[in-house]
Nucleic acid binder design. Structure first.
Length: 270
DNA sequence: AAAGACACCTGGGAGC
DNA sequence: TGCTCCCAGGTGTCTT
């Protein structure tokens, strides 16, 4: 479910409700996520005050004086703010109960997500060796061009590699490549600097557009049924295999790259 | 070193 | 209605 824009939207949505709050309890009903929830996490966060919420790649960090709880939403995870008496649904695995009678509730049917802990001033191994944030100034066409030299992997696989750039998931990789007019299976190392400038630009714009739209549905993260913002995003190719290209009308092609569904227009992308 | 396959897990939809 | 099969927004780890 969550690509970078949804994690960012979640981060912004929950921050005002939990920042400055003291944690009353951590309830872990199902510790078997992608990695087990640490046994001692409850002791680490109980009676401690949340000082900040931030995002790095698709990780959501809840900061305390002495360290941070790290959430990852995996494929199907979501975090929402609910009232303390809100009935549990299936797959509501974790509650972080706050002083203000609100609960930060983690829901994740497939359990590919995670809840971990990192000590102060010491980067968790998972957050080490990550590439730049796509929306930062250190990420751009020149960087992509340089990183891609002599690489034979498909350009789509390349931009989805978290050590190159974080946060470009399957939906937005497809969309950014369409907008840049680049065929997803082109060898990364064979693409010109000029075209990487355009690709970096479309990656940034497709992600910021989605975040902007997610911002309009922030209330969904504090009640309601929690429909993620990017469901509203206009998708040009993702999920539209064999439908007509919105640009030229030709039938969109669907292939698999790195076991991921890949959709593109043979006419508009080369 | 880089590329590709596989793993984790549940639910929904298609096809029979 | 119910069974079987395939697919799904991620990403660490193992094998070539």
């Amino acid at each position: 479910m969550p690509e970078l824009p949804e994690v960012e939207t979640t981060c912004r949505g929950i921050a005002p409700h939990i920042t400055g709050q003291k944690v009353n309890a951590l309830i872990v009903r199902q510790p078997k996520l992608r990695w087990p929830v640490p046994d001692d996490l409850s002791e680490k966060v109980c009676n401690k005050t949340i000082i900040k919420v931030s995002r790095r790649a698709k990780y959501l960090l809840i900061h305390f004086d002495h360290g941070a709880a790290i959430f990852h939403l995996g494929m199907s995870g979501s975090l929402r703010i609910v009232d303390h008496n809100t009935p549990l649904k299936k797959h509501d695995h974790i509650d972080l109960q706050l002083n203000n009678k609100k609960v930060l509730r983690y829901h994740d049917p497939r359990r590919f997500g995670a809840l971990l802990w990192q000590n102060k001033e010491q980067l968790h191994p998972l957050l080490d060796h990550l590439g730049p944030e796509p929306l930062s100034d250190t990420f751009g066409g020149n960087y992509l061009f340089q990183q891609s030299r002599k690489r034979k992997t498909a350009v789509k696989t390349f931009i989805m590699d978290g050590s190159i750039v974080v946060g470009v998931g399957n939906i937005y990789a497809n969309e950014a490549l369409f907008s840049a007019g680049i065929k997803p299976d082109r060898e990364a190392g064979s693409i010109s600097r000029k075209r990487y400038y355009l690709l970096a630009k479309t990656i940034k714009s497709v992600l910021s557009q989605a975040i902007k739209q997610g911002g309009s549905t922030l209330r969904d993260f504090v009640g309601g049924d929690g429909k993620p913002g990017y469901f509203q995003q206009t998708l040009n190719v993702y999920g539209r295999g064999s439908e007509p290209c919105k640009q030229c009308g030709k039938s969109l092609k669907e292939i698999r790259l790195g076991q991921r569904s890949t959709v593109f227009c043979n006419g508009c992308q080369r």
